[in-house]
Design a protein around this nucleic acid. Structure first.
Length: 509
RNA sequence: GGCGACGUAGCUCAGUUGGUCAGAGCGCUCGACUCAUAAUCGAGAGGUCGACAGUUCAAGUCUGUCCGUCGCUACCA
C-alpha cells in the first residue's frame, strides 16, 4: 500500500496559536485527508518546538522553568488543533525523550561521517530569530524581521559542512519533478543553492536549554537543527528503523515561504550527511496578511482561531464552526502567494458556498424527496446528465489536490454542487406527480450529493458526515475511496432520509 | 546591482505549446420560480487583458523598453 507522510512545521512555543498557524495546519490536515480518501496509508504530524534562547529567556521573565513555559503553550496548540478537527496522528514536542534520542543519534551519525568540525564563531545574533547575521543583513544593527537590535556574540561552535552538499542538492532540486510546489518556490531554492554555501553553526555553548551534543557536554544543538529532526523522530528514526524506512521515503513538508532555507537547504544536506538519501517533497505556502502585514502575535493584529470557530460577540465575530473556518482558509487563499485575510470575504464564502449552495441543496433535496418519493429514497439514473458532470468534478478535484491547490480543487467540487442546483431548477421536481420521473430526478440529486460529500470531506469533515447521514448513507464519509466510491451510481436508493436544521445557518455580515 | 514573480471585469482570481482567450466565482441590475437557510435558476451589465514599440497571416499568450507592486540575493560604501 502506498504511504503518505505529511508534516506541519513544529510551532515555536513562544507564540500562542494564531490564524497563521491554523492556516498551515488546516492545509496539512486537508492534504492528509485527501490522501486517505485516495486509499493511501497516511501519517500526519504536527507539534511544538520548545528549545532555544528565546524560550529560556521568556521563561525567566515569567518566573517559570523553560519546560513549564513550554508545557503551557504546547497544550494550547494541541487544544487548538483538536478544536479545528485536525486529525494528526502524532503530536511531537522537541523536549520529549524520544526526540532527544533521535537528535543525538542523527547528529552523531553526521559527526561520525566527518561532516562536523569545531570552530569559533563571532557575530551579531538576533535572539528572536535564533540566528547570526552579518552587518549588512541588518537595518542599522536591527534585525529586519523583528526590528530589534542584534547582539554581539562569540562562542566556540560546531559547524556543519553544508558546503560539501551543494552539488547533490542542486541535482535533487533540479531533477526531481514536483519536489517543490508551487514551482516558483523551486526556483528560489535553486537560487539559494547556486550561491556559495557557507558552513553553518549548529551548536551553542552559551545556553543549556537544548539538546546536549553527544560528543561534547558543554554544547547544545542550535534550536533549528534540533527542530528539523523532529520529522525523523516522529517516524522512528534511531528507535525503530523498520518504521522509519516505511514512512520516510514519502515525507512531505508543508512550510511557509519564510522557512525555505532551513527546510530546503540545511535539512536535506543534514539528511544526506547522516546517510539518508530519501529527501523530502515540499509544499510551500505564502503568508496570510492583515492589512498587508504578516500576521503575528508581536504585531498584535491576530484574531484567534477560537474566536472565529466559536464566535465572539464582544468583538463582533460570527460563529463559523470548524467547517466554516477550514473552508475559508482552504478555498480563498491561493496556495503559494501571500494573501490578505478578510473577515468580509470569509463571511461571504461561508454564506455562498456552505449555506446557500451546499447546505441549502441538502435541505431542498431531502424535503422534495420526502414529499414526492414515498417512504424511502430513489436510486440514481445510470444515464443521468449529472453523471458526466460528476465524473468531471471527481477528475478535476483530484488533479488539483494532487497539485497541492486546494482552492482549485474546491472550486471543482462546488461546481458539481451548483450544477445539481441547476439540475433541480431545470426539472422542477416539486411540480411533478409522484412516479418514476420524479424518482429519477431526485435519485440523481442524491447521488450527486453523495459524491460531493466525499469530495468535500477534506475541507468540511463535519458537514460532509452529517449530510452523508441525512441522505441515509451508513458509515463514515471519510472512509470512502476515490475513485471507486465516486463512480456514478453508488447511491443505492431505498434509504431513509432525515430532515434536520440547516446544516450551515447563514451568518450575518 | 543580479535573478525571479506579478500587474486580466467593482472584488478574488482562471487563462497548457500564440489562432472561439476575452473567462469563472462573488458583488450589482432585471426577470423566473417557490422544494429550500430572503436560499435557487436565467439574462444582463461590457474590462482597449499595466504602458509603449516590435515579431507574426494571427498575441493577455512571444521579444524589447518603461511604469507599478513584491520576493530571493550580492557588492560597493
Amino acid at each position: 500500500m502506498s504511504r503518505f507522510y505529511i508534516t506541519t512545521p513544529i510551532y515555536y512555543v513562544n507564540d500562542a496559536p494564531h490564524i497563521g498557524h491554523a492556516y498551515t495546519t488546516v492545509l496539512v490536515d486537508a492534504f492528509a485527508r485527501w490522501h486517505h480518501l485516495l486509499g493511501e496509508e497516511t501519517f500526519m504530524l504536527t507539534g511544538t518546538d520548545e528549545h532555544g534562547l528565546k524560550i529560556a529567556r521568556s521563561a525567566e521573565e515569567n518566573g517559570v522553568t523553560p519546560l513549564e513555559q513550554a508545557d503551557s503553550t504546547s497544550v494550547r496548540f494541541r487544544d487548538a488543533w483538536e478544536q479545528l478537527g485536525i486529525r494528526n496522528d502524532d503530536f511531537i514536542r522537541t523536549t520529549e525523550p524520544r526526540h532527544h534520542a533521535a537528535v543525538q543519534a542523527l547528529m552523531q551519525k553526521v559527526y561520525d561521517n566527518g561532516w562536523i568540525y569545531s570552530d569559533t564563531y563571532e557575530g551579531l545574533y538576533c535572539v528572536s530569530c535564533e540566528a547570526y547575521y552579518t552587518e549588512d543583513e541588518l537595518n542599522d544593527g536591527n534585525c529586519k524581521v523583528h526590528d530589534k537590535p542584534a547582539e554581539q556574540m562569540r562562542e566556540e561552535n560546531y559547524f556543519f559542512k553544508l558546503s560539501a552538499f551543494a552539488d547533490q542538492l542542486l541535482d535533487y532540486f533540479e531533477n526531481t519533478p514536483g519536489v517543490v510546489q508551487p514551482e516558483g518556490y523551486r526556483n528560489e531554492v535553486l537560487g539559494l543553492l547556486r550561491q556559495e554555501l557557507r558552513d553553518v553553526s549548529i551548536s551553542r555553548s552559551s545556553i543549556d536549554w537544548g539538546i546536549p551534543v553527544p560528543w561534547d557536554d558543554d554544547h547544545v544543538f542550535y534550536v533549528w537543527y534540533d527542530a528539523l529532526i523532529n520529522y525523523a523522530t516522529a517516524v522512528g528514526y534511531g528507535a525503530d528503523p523498520e518504521r522509519f524506512d516505511e514512512w520516510w521515503p514519502s515525507v512531505h513538508h508543508v512550510i511557509g515561504k519564510d522557512i525555505i532555507r532551513f527546510h530546503c537547504v540545511f535539512w536535506p544536506a543534514m539528511l544526506l550527511a547522516a546517510g539518508i538519501t530519501d529527501l523530502p517533497t515540499y509544499y510551500v505556502h505564502g503568508w496570510l496578511l492583515i492589512g498587508g502585514e504578516k500576521m503575528s502575535k508581536s504585531k498584535l493584529n491576530s484574531v484567534s482561531p477560537a474566536q472565529l470557530v466559536d464566535g465572539d460577540e464582544e468583538h463582533g465575530y460570527a460563529s463559523f464552526g470548524v467547517d466554516g473556518f477550514r473552508y475559508h482558509f482552504l478555498r480563498d487563499p491561493a496556495f503559494g502567494p501571500d494573501s490578505d485575510f478578510s473577515y468580509e470575504s470569509m463571511i461571504s464564502r461561508y454564506n455562498t458556498d456552505l449555506a446557500n449552495q451546499f447546505g441549502n441543496l441538502l435541505q431542498r433535496v431531502i424535503t422534495v424527496t420526502g414529499k414526492k418519493c414515498g417512504e424511502t429514497s430513489p436510486a440514481p439514473n445510470p444515464d443521468a446528465s449529472l453523471a458526466a458532470l460528476a465524473a468531471v468534478a471527481v477528475e478535476e478535484t483530484t488533479a488539483a489536490w494532487v497539485r497541492a491547490q486546494p482552492p482549485i480543487a474546491l472550486d471543482a467540487t462546488w461546481r458539481l454542487i451548483r450544477e445539481t442546483n441547476e439540475y433541480l431548477a431545470a426539472n422542477e421536481p416539486w411540480k411533478m406527480e409522484p412516479g418514476a420521473a420524479v424518482d429519477a430526478v431526485m435519485g440523481d440529486a442524491l447521488e450527486a450529493l453523495r459524491i460531493a460529500c466525499i469530495l468535500a470531506e477534506p475541507a468540511i469533515p463535519n458537514g460532509a458526515q452529517i449530510a452523508w447521514e441525512r441522505i441515509g448513507l451508513p458509515g463514515r464519509v471519510a472512509d470512502q475511496r476515490i475513485p471507486d466510491d465516486t463512480v456514478w451510481g453508488g447511491y443505492p436508493g431505498g434509504l431513509t432520509l432525515q430532515a434536520g436544521d440547516p446544516l450551515y445557518p447563514r451568518l450575518k455580515g
